[in-house]
Simulated scan of single mutants.
Amino acid sequence: MDGLGWNAGTWTNVPVAVAVSGDGMRVTAAEGSDAWRLTSYGFVHDTEHALLAPFPNGTAMEVEFRSDLAEQFDQAGIFVSVDAETWIKAGVERSDGADSLGAVVTRVSSDWSSAPVPDWHGRLVTVRASRSGDALTVRARVDSEPWQLVRVAPLDEDAVVAAGPMCCAPSRPGFAVQFTAWRTGPADGSLHAD
């Protein structure tokens, strides 16, 4: 995987603050920022902070960050965007007092899948999205532990797609995420480990 510079992308919505240093990129999210469309809640939120760069078919992208989520719906991970009604976000989110690893896949309306990862709190998380053919495969891991499959979702193989680091703070001001790496490389060779 090759590192991407923090200036390689464009923000969907400019954060409250961005500070780039030798330790990575620290992003402070705006209160009320989120990405969701319709399902169950009835609202559309398109105020996420996502730094997007081109994501062609046949490639993978990784985002690495320190998981220091503290309040309801604090979230960080990767955002994969086709258009305003077609996107995927995946990463770690604080929900009902616990950290969960999950994904939201949106095709006009959003869905949400998640699983608790309480032992990931305060540790280094990597989320990897891999485009191959008509599919996007999302994996994640903490520190150097084995990859876990998060989601396999359909993604038009001819779509023009952008992706990159994402964070949101739906419930509070002052939430900041320390992103430590942003990488790209070839798509995963297989859905299943050999």
Rank of each mutant, 00 (worst) to 15 (best):
M1Q: 08
D2A: 14
G3D: 15
G5A: 15
N7K: 14
A8L: 09
A8W: 05
W11G: 04
T12M: 15
N13S: 13
N13V: 14
V14M: 14
P15Y: 07
P15W: 06
V16I: 11
A17E: 15
A17R: 15
V18M: 09
V20M: 02
D23H: 11
D23Q: 13
D23T: 05
R26H: 01
R26Y: 01
A30K: 11
E31S: 11
G32E: 01
S33K: 02
S33H: 02
D34A: 02
A35H: 02
A35S: 12
A35V: 08
W36A: 03
R37H: 07
L38D: 10
L38G: 02
Y41L: 14
Y41I: 12
V44F: 02
T47N: 11
E48R: 08
P54L: 04
F55D: 08
F55H: 08
F55I: 06
N57G: 15
G58K: 12
G58D: 07
G58H: 09
A60I: 04
M61P: 04
M61E: 13
E62S: 15
E62F: 01
D68E: 14
A70K: 14
E71V: 10
E71Q: 13
G77H: 09
I78C: 08
F79D: 00
V80A: 07
V80D: 00
S81A: 13
V82I: 14
V82A: 12
V82W: 09
D83C: 10
E85Q: 14
T86L: 03
W87C: 06
K89R: 12
G91Q: 04
V92Q: 08
E93H: 05
E93G: 09
D96A: 14
D96W: 07
G97L: 10
A98D: 11
D99A: 06
L101Q: 07
A103L: 07
V108R: 11
S110V: 05
S110H: 04
D111M: 04
S113R: 08
S113K: 08
A115T: 15
P116M: 07
P116K: 13
V117Q: 10
V117P: 07
D119M: 11
D119Y: 04
W120G: 10
H121Y: 01
H121G: 13
R123T: 09
V125D: 01
V125T: 09
T126P: 06
T126E: 05
V127I: 15
R128Q: 13
S132L: 07
S132V: 04
G133P: 04
A135N: 03
L136E: 01
L136A: 05
L136K: 04
R139C: 03
A140F: 00
R141F: 00
V142K: 00
D143T: 03
R151H: 02
V152Y: 02
V152W: 01
A153L: 11
P154K: 03
P154S: 07
L155Y: 10
L155V: 10
D156W: 08
D156F: 01
D158V: 03
G164P: 06
G164V: 13
P165C: 06
P165F: 06
P165Y: 03
C167T: 15
C167N: 12
A176T: 06
Q178E: 08
Q178G: 00
F179C: 03
T180K: 04
A181S: 03
A187Q: 10
G189T: 14
S190M: 12
A193P: 04
A193M: 08
